[in-house]
Design a protein around this nucleic acid. Structure first.
Ligand code: MN
Ligand code: MN
Ligand code: MN
Ligand code: MN
Lengths: 221, 221
DNA sequence: AAGTCTATTTTGAATACTCGAAATGCAAGC
DNA sequence: GCTTGCATTTCGAGTATTCAAAATAGACTT
């Protein structure tokens, strides 16, 4: 049984592998886990010895199939717990991350599957991030379109927030562009880099291209 | 910021203080926590140094007010989580203890109070054990009567199981004498030490005095 | 080729928890 | 009073995780 620390390293590595390609540099784990570089080196060596990851000296790490399976399990717990906290316990979608960060290590598979059933097998968490199923398969997100690249004047809805930093989450909360909200992109002003959209009819919001690129939109249900 | 280990020591000490009177011998903690005696001595000294308990050498320990307050918080988490797992996630009342044993250390107060509200502020867990309120006050249980001492031929219901060992829990499950079940004690055969009762009319069950003493009964709601 | 910069590794030490085994204190019995 | 027995403590050691600080390997410059 992997300790919480090991589970956190696995999840951080998986997340980085998903966002970027190839090997995960040690520095990425230093950043994600908030520890000093030497600590990561020590932990990584231990985990490599356990067969959870491969360590290329001076390069970084890569999950082994065993490590990836475990990491997907942790990610599934994290996202199902977040969904549960928001949907069932009515917690604010912007405050559940830290809670899930701790609970993901304490929820057994038995409890997890009851939660999954209770929620009706959701496929995305409150931030719109896909929830791996029991076999570790994640729904395809390659075709997702952001407010930076979506169709103009089409009625859509926010389905996912790609930047989970407290700052951006607060911004999304403010503008009301939370997952589930209806939006229509009115026009993009190339020169200024401003994207204009409306949530309620007549209520116009302007946001920068970088922000727009972090908000995934999709067809309304 | 007590670690899970410290929280477990606190809870075990509180539970022993509640069942018995006076100082808690080291051996009781050895037993409850499943560690060797030397480990308890080490931990107890560390916790005494932190002001969580008082350690009388060769005698045992006693919680300080600070330690007791923390212990009550852990107990509250444990019992509310158990209640939640049974009532909301439909888990078996006999299998929730181990889950709660881990979750009690991962559930934040914020999440706990949402669970408490969601459940409608329950006062007893699935085993009938009282749930401390937010201030650490536990409902009085001094007046509780067991099947060993209750009135004869009176329609009652099981309200609490005092022995939580897997064996006894399985026995209770078998006989159907779970909390909530209606029972009527028909007679007690002093000589043989057999207590005869019925759950459904016409369905008679015989149990020993020791078992009867572990099943608390009360008036039907 | 030599120098510089930065990511990573190494080293030494600390904290929290644990064990096994040896030592010890104390109460009870002889 | 001395011996036993059991509970408790002490001692030495190991695992997991962490940090600070010094050493080093590579990549990138000049
Ligand atoms: Mn975590
Ligand atoms: Mn999320
Ligand atoms: Mn516990
Ligand atoms: Mn209970």
């Amino acid at each position: 049984m992997a300790t919480s620390t090991v589970e956190n390293y696995l999840k951080a590595t998986l997340l980085h592998e998903q966002e970027n390609d190839g090997i995960v540099p040690m520095g990425a784990l230093v950043e994600a886990l908030g520890v000093v570089p030497g600590t990561v080196t020590t932990m990584v060596k231990a985990m490599a010895a356990q067969g959870l990851m491969e360590h290329e000296s001076r390069q970084g790490v890569r999950l082994t199939p065993v490590g990836r399976a475990l990491a997907l399990g942790v990610l599934r717990k994290h996202r199902l717990v977040e969904t549960f906290l928001v949907r069932t316990l009515k917690m604010d979608w912007s405050e559940v991350h830290d809670e899930a960060e701790a609970l993901e290590h304490a929820v057994s598979n038995r409890v997890l599957e009851r939660i999954d059933e209770f929620l009706g097998h959701p496929t995305a968490d409150p931030h719109g991030d896909p929830i791996p199923n029991q076999e570790g398969v994640i729904a395809d997100t390659a075709t997702q379109v952001t407010m930076q690249g979506c169709a103009i004047n089409k009625s859509l809805q926010v389905t996912r927030i790609l930047d989970q930093s407290p700052d951006f989450l607060a911004y999304v909360q403010d503008t009301g562009l939370k997952p589930g909200t209806r939006v229509k992109v009115l026009r993009r002003e190339e020169a200024s880099g401003v994207v204009r959209c409306e949530t309620k009819i007549g209520h116009e919001i302007a946001l920068g291209l970088t922000a727009a690129a972090k908000i995934v939109v999709g067809a309304v249900a």
